[in-house]
């Protein structure tokens, strides 16, 4: 005979915390984070960060300076290990993984302050992105065995194909640090794409670009998503870009999510307006 010790409870469906585009509904979300958080010696840089990014979604992460956006990127790419919560990438838990393993699992990123391999050519920068797509070892490389020639040739073709996304094939043998600023940002995106990611993280891709270049970048991000069928999560301060291409937007302030929704919802949200512009005075209201 069993005895029931708990009180009677009525079970209800758990409300979905996040929105994904309708086309991605029946697929496994590419990224899910649950109550993700990190503390730096008592300072909670990010806490209770839970989002879901659909398989082919372009998602935006915005917020005032110092809100913890880049910290979120560092948590997702395992530069930092979270103190609480978890990250599921394509349904696989990334706990305890290294940055290199995260890259192999299909996450690629660009950096806010450009981090190219400055002393190497544009082509070599992309080839390093293809590092895990080719497999010949050190000895085939030194003794130039057939594997070397075959794979180097394929790698060269792949590199040129990737560079053609931004029309940069002609710049292949230029030293990366000699590129103009905008081209350096584009090269970083190409290098990230070379790792064949499922999720591309862009940290302020439009920073320092003029309106014309930003316009082009918006088209290119959408084109990349369509061509490679990947998800994009981007941090950006340029609201024209964010509102123009992001399907789901998440607003972060002081390490916490203050709003999630579509562009229209975010623009109308008083909490977001308050975070960006400050509280309206009672008298004015």
């Amino acid at each position: 005979m069993t005895e029931t010790r708990r009180s009677t409870t009525k079970m209800v469906p758990f409300p979905s915390r996040s929105i994904v585009p309708e086309r991605d509904l029946d697929k496994q979300p590419i990224l899910e984070t649950n109550h993700l958080g990190i503390e730096f010696g008592g300072l909670k840089a990010v806490q209770d960060f839970s989002i879901t990014v659909g398989r082919t979604e372009i998602a935006g992460l915005i917020g005032p300076n110092g809100a913890g956006k880049t910290t979120v990127f560092n948590l997702l790419t395992k530069v930092y290990q979270p103190t609480t919560g978890m990250v599921l990438l394509d349904g696989v838990d990334t706990a305890g993984k290294t940055t290199v393993e995260a890259s192999k699992m299909g996450i690629a990123r660009t950096f806010q302050n450009i981090r190219l391999f400055g002393n190497m050519t544009v082509e070599d920068n992309v080839r390093i992105g293809l590092h895990n797509q080719i497999s010949y070892n050190m000895f085939s490389g030194i003794f130039r065995l057939p594997g070397y020639w075959k794979q180097e040739k394929r790698q060269h073709e792949k590199t040129m194909e990737l560079l053609s996304i931004f029309d940069m094939q002609d710049l292949a043998d230029v030293k990366a640090s000699n590129l103009p600023y905008g081209a350096q940002r584009r090269l970083e995106i190409v290098r990230a794409l070379a790792t064949e990611p499922k999720l591309l993280l862009l940290d302020e891709p439009a920073a320092g670009m003029n309106p014309h270049e930003t316009e082009e970048l918006m088209d290119n991000i959408i084109r990349i998503r369509d061509q490679f069928q990947i998800a994009v999560l981007l941090i950006e301060h340029d609201m024209k870009l964010v509102m123009g291409i992001c399907e789901g937007i998440c607003v972060l302030n002081f390490g916490q999510i203050i709003a999630k929704g579509t562009a229209e919802e975010i623009q109308a949200n008083p909490v977001v307006i308050e975070a960006y512009l400050g509280k309206q005075k009672e008298a004015e209201a």
Binding site: T77, V79, T98, T99, V100, S103, K104, A108, R109, F111, R115, L116, F117, G118, N119, M120, D124, R127, I128, G129, H131, N132, I134, Y136, N137, M138, S140, G141, I142, F143, R144, Y148, Q151, R191, A192, A194, T195
Partner: peptide, 25 residues
């Protein structure tokens, strides 16, 4: 030959930018 191969590029990538090299695996 090492410099001109996959391994050599990885060695130089680690020199030029450690964090970026790790981020591409």
């Amino acid at each position: 030959n090492l410099i001109g191969s996959r391994s050599g590029r990885a060695i130089m990538a680690a020199r030029d930018n450690r964090i970026a090299a790790e981020s591409v695996g």
